[in-house]
Amino acid sequence: MVFSGFIITYNRSNLILDSISKVLSQSVSPDFLWIIDNSSDSLTLEAVDSLKSKKVKYHHMGSNAGPAGAAAKGLELCAADKADWIYWGDDDDPPTDPLIFEELFSIINFLPNNVKVGQVGLVGQLFDTQKGKIKRIENEVLNREFVLVDNIAGNQIKIINSNVVASNLLPNPKLFFGFEELDFDLKMKNRGFLSFISGELMFKQRVKYNTLNKTSNFNKHYQNNENWRDFYSNRNLLYILWINQMYLGFFNRLTVLLVKPIFNLRYGLKSFFSQVKFALRVFVGFLKLLNA
């Protein structure tokens, strides 16, 4: 088995060496590791070169392609290097325990050979297609050896089966940022590739971060604050729902987007018009993305 990986980074040369170290210190360590650099300077390249490691490879995107474009390139490069399994990582979310990769591979080895595994990961979510929302997995479900999920976020130790890439499935670079992993995971699901997490590992994460009784916060991107993160997240979610023919979910999310300004009237006309402007910007962005 050839195990490879990539780490997406953007102007975080101060973090990249620690992230690389934590990935390569895993008990099951990647045979090689690509650094996919969206940075606007050469500091990350200088940091990577200082390692003088044959395991670590470097690719500069030329411009900021966002997590979506960088992940697509990382998967392509790892597949071209004949990897069987590919770690998808972020520069600021390295594995926190040296046994995580080993434990995730134990899920793959435990599953029957006839199960078409697309990916495994540390923390997963379900997706409510009718409401167009990420859905929290109940604690009681996590008592299983492995749990079938719809989505594993990029910062939750995704390990991808290279057969997915061989099937011409890649993240959509047009999404740039926001739910690009959800789009990719739903495309996998539509092709019959399944996503699994370790119930035990996810339960331990909730204990560690004291979130056992926490209500879902996965939908924070729906708050429609007027900033670039919320713009991309709302725009992309509308796009993902539409192209996957999840029309009820699409109209639910669109309704929330359009009704939010009315509720903001209680904060004054300035807040109302700000939300109207944001909603129109998101919808126009969705239409442009659809026709791109």
Results as ranks from 00 to 15, higher is better:
236 N>V: 07
268 G>F: 03
262 I>P: 00
121 G>F: 00
44 T>M: 03
266 R>I: 15
190 N>Q: 14
258 L>S: 08
77 L>P: 15
118 G>S: 04
138 E>W: 03
52 K>T: 15
156 Q>C: 13
221 H>F: 15
101 F>S: 09
35 I>M: 03
176 F>S: 03
80 A>P: 00
36 I>D: 07
65 A>G: 11
61 M>R: 08
106 S>N: 14
86 I>C: 01
30 P>V: 01
116 K>Y: 01
199 G>K: 00
139 N>H: 07
118 G>W: 01
168 N>T: 10
149 V>S: 02
271 S>L: 02
167 S>A: 06
89 G>Y: 00
185 D>C: 11
15 L>P: 14
61 M>P: 15
21 S>E: 14
270 K>T: 11
45 L>P: 10
228 W>G: 00
243 I>T: 13
157 I>T: 11
121 G>N: 05
129 T>Y: 10
166 A>R: 13
121 G>E: 06
145 E>W: 02
208 K>N: 13
23 V>N: 07
272 F>D: 06
256 V>K: 05
5 G>W: 04
49 D>L: 04
163 N>I: 06
80 A>D: 06
29 S>A: 03
275 Q>R: 13
151 N>C: 05
42 S>D: 15
238 L>K: 04
185 D>H: 11
44 T>R: 01
131 K>A: 05
209 Y>M: 03
284 V>I: 11
260 K>R: 11
14 N>A: 08
248 L>K: 12
152 I>Y: 00
108 I>N: 06
148 L>R: 12
50 S>M: 05
220 K>P: 09
162 S>V: 15
109 N>T: 07
113 N>I: 07
170 L>M: 06
260 K>G: 05
32 F>S: 09
283 F>G: 10
235 R>E: 02
268 G>A: 04
134 I>T: 09
247 Y>K: 12
167 S>E: 12
11 N>K: 06
5 G>E: 05
166 A>E: 13
89 G>F: 00
162 S>Q: 13
